[in-house]
Write a protein that binds this DNA or RNA. Structure first.
Lengths: 224, 224
DNA sequence: CTGCAAGTAATCCAAATGGATAATATATTT
DNA sequence: AAATATATTATCCATTTGGATTACTTGCAG
């Protein structure tokens, strides 16, 4: 099974270079090419779930919708795709923003051909996001220089305040992800009517009456 | 010119495995072996500056003086040496502490022989600290989960992801609180129609199409 | 065996939502 | 003066949501 790749870069030459590198490497299949974030999101809409890429290689500086915003939006719309930055920029600010936006990896374009293929393949094998050595090094420096600091997170008190059933908790999780009745039904293999019934039961137990309120509560009380 | 290496590990077998791996790789010369931090510092004193290692590979869990403390002490005594953690531990806490202590790289022992040699050699060539992919990945996760945060006082903190106008940001805040068009209108003293218009504009800028998705994005990327 | 809780499913209906489009006012910029 | 960005209001319309109610099945506790 080959890995389905999307390439998002505003320069035609870049798109082609990357494409050829990956095709030459084998194991990869290019399923989508876009010249900016808007174009990418647009084209994604036209794909049915089976055709969607596994990995999206995204440049940072692009017109219309830049890489960071693209990743931020795309991670909520298509959370299963691995978004990997592929760019020439290696300044702290861009690195940090891209990661916060949800980048799974960060590769520099000056990596040689095999390296990029290797790292993407490695990602697929190990599940670890690919990061160019120079980038990893910069992040270490940030930590050492106290520009990055760790926040102590207190214990996760698993309190079951509201007595949601297993099924209802499951429903709540999907609800929080933004799914409609229809989609929840599909996801769980039940009728959308049933999904709706569950949702409304959840509302009653949480004493809310809308999705956003439910999400708010779930977030605050950490019951997800 | 070969790279002079020190190996600090409490297990005899480990020391030998590493030694043999590196010798087989070539380019490396083992100038010091120690079984814990105290032992390492002790032996370092006996070396004159020309004989000192370029790189010290240090295990973390050791008796007498553990890896973190060893690195912390050694970086002040011999700041020119690159201290690279070589261990089996990959938990956040150890990683973070080691880096803060001054580790220049962090490698996992389960890397295969060539990889460790490669990465050390690469470090020598590029000047970037060697980091195992899995470790880099963990650090990225930490940043993404807001467990690591950037501290900057000098730079203008523009967390203005997506170019929302002031009004739109205001609207988004209310949206996130679960208010309906009507309520948003009341809150801001505008028509519910206007509120709705703003909401839809926000959706378009965020590339989402529902409240929950917008909330999801706002929450994750911290644009509120 | 019986009853109750949980899960499933459907229907009716009012209200809210999202999308598209158009129009006006008010600043600010060029 | 003209162009641009922002904020405001409105209407049409299809879809979705929330709410109430009824009903069937299954598994488990009394």
């Amino acid at each position: 099974m080959s890995i389905k790749i999307a390439i998002v870069d505003d320069k035609f030459v870049n798109r082609n270079i990357i494409k050829n590198k990956l095709l030459a490497y084998g194991h990869f299949e290019i399923v989508l090419m876009a010249e900016n974030g808007s174009d990418f999101l647009q084209k994604m809409k036209t794909l049915n779930p089976k055709e969607r890429p596994d990995v999206a290689l995204i440049d940072l500086e692009m017109p219309e919708l830049d890489g960071v915003d693209t990743i931020a939006a795309a991670t909520t719309l298509y959370p299963n795709i691995k978004y990997v930055v592929l760019t020439i920029f290696d300044d702290e600010d861009k690195i940090f923003k891209a990661i916060k936006a949800g980048a799974f990896g960060y590769l520099l374009k000056d990596e040689n051909a095999e390296n990029i293929g290797d790292m993407l393949w490695q990602m697929h094998e190990s599940g670890a996001g690919p990061i160019s050595p120079g980038i990893a090094h910069k992040i270490l420096q940030l930590i050492q220089n106290n520009k990055l600091t760790i926040l102590k997170k207190d214990t996760v008190t698993e309190k079951i305040l509201f007595e949601l059933t297993d099924r209802e908790t499951e429903i709540l999780k999907l609800l929080v992800k933004g799914l409609a009745y229809k989609e929840i039904g599909q996801e769980l293999g039940i009728s959308p009517n049933t999904a709706k019934k569950h949702v409304i039961n959840v509302y009653q137990k949480l004493h809310v009456n809308s999705r956003v309120q439910a999400l708010h509560l779930a977030q605050e009380k950490g019951l997800l």
